[in-house]
């Protein structure tokens, strides 16, 4: 067999072998668990330290602007910021720019409030603490005290209580979200008279304290769609609301201009960005450990090395076989 034939055979390899290769390099590292360190960058640190300075008097938005397709990247970002906010007792308004994204918001809540999640928060639904609300006990500290005095006990492993309407409001989806953002610069309640659970938002203490986006301190858009631009265009440029980006890796490079121009305070790019935030949370004792994004980074390393090897091998075969001088190769499967 001539040398050229070997290169040609190599280039025409059945692509299913490559598929098998990528499957193997994406599975094996999970069992070896290298735990390679993830070094944080200023892009993510800026969001973290901005968030860390916020407290119970502030409020943030976490906008679920991604579909199930990109949840592997976007979900850890949103979850990390939610946990950070709950730890600092910062009220979180949760929105979604598309119906499927609404489902992602509910999925994030299920994850953060699920007792099987390491470092979960124990949720108190809006109706369950009605009595205390009516007695005007709404400040977080006294609310927790009064709630526990009623005989409620924090489950083992839970990091704290989160009260619906005090610590979070699941607002969800509304159509034409760019105009919804604009509308919320005037009134949040007009855009969301009820939340995703059917509760009246007007009765929520956090909404009574933060009536419009002008009284909110940051919006994180965890985005797999162009909705992140809406937050910059319609909230940042209209009223100066600080925006943080959590973007899929595919989108991340496109928005560096916003970052450099100071239109966003920081950006988490892809799984790596989420892993950095998880590292910062764990290092600062906000969560007991890192989570799924960090665990995935070992696999990410192995897969990148594999793909770089594929590029090198592809080029080697292409040039060594002299195909750069020839007409087209026969296509492989």
């Amino acid at each position: 067999m001539s040398a050229v034939n070997i290169w040609e055979k190599m280039l025409n390899i059945d692509r299913r072998w490559i598929f098998l290769g990528i499957a193997v390099v994406s599975i094996v590292p999970f069992f070896i668990n290298f735990g390679m360190p993830v070094v944080t960058t200023t892009e993510v640190e800026d969001i973290f330290y901005y968030m860390d300075d916020l407290g119970p008097d502030n409020a943030i938005f976490v906008s679920f602007d991604f579909a199930p397709g990109t949840q592997a990247e976007n979900m850890p970002m949103a979850v990390a910021v939610m946990r950070h906010a709950f730890h600092n007792n910062v009220p979180v308004f949760m929105t979604a720019n598309w119906p499927l994204h609404h489902g992602m918001m509910l999925a994030a809540m299920e994850y953060v409030f699920n007792p099987s999640t390491v470092g979960f928060y124990q949720e108190v639904p809006f109706d369950d603490w009605r009595e205390l609300r009516e007695a005007d006990v709404t400040a977080k500290g006294e609310l927790v005290e009064a709630w526990e005095n009623q005989g409620n006990q924090l489950s083992e492993g839970a990091l704290g209580w989160v009260f619906e309407g005090r610590d979070y409001a699941a607002m969800g989806y509304a159509p034409v979200f760019n105009l919804v953002i604009l509308g919320m610069t005037v009134s949040i309640e007009t855009q969301y008279p009820v939340d995703a659970h059917g509760n009246s938002t007007g009765e929520m203490p956090m909404l009574q304290e933060h009536k419009s986006l002008r009284e909110v301190d940051m919006a994180l858009t965890s985005s797999g769609s162009g909705a992140c631009v809406w937050w910059v265009t319609y909230a940042r440029e209209k009223i100066g609301l600080p925006i943080a980006f959590g973007l899929t890796a595919v989108m991340a490079t496109d928005y560096y201009p916003y970052l450099q121009a100071g239109q966003v305070i920081g950006q988490m790019g892809g799984l790596r960005g989420a892993a950095e935030y998880e590292v910062l949370l764990a290092e600062n004792g906000i969560t007991p450990s890192t989570d799924k994004a960090f665990t995935g980074m070992d696999v990410q390393s192995a897969a990148h090395i594999f793909i770089i090897l594929l590029i090198i091998m592809g080029n080697l075969a292409f040039f060594a076989g002299g195909f750069h001088k020839k007409t087209l190769l026969k296509g492989g499967r």
Partner: peptide, 27 residues
């Protein structure tokens, strides 16, 4: 819905690996 859609998107990992081997040339 979630598993189907998430898996469909993840198929692209396989195709991008294949494309890296076949099409990414320093010509």
């Amino acid at each position: 819905q979630v598993p189907i859609q998430a898996t469909m998107f993840s198929l692209l990992a396989f195709y991008i690996a294949s494309a890296a081997f076949r099409a990414f040339r320093a010509k």
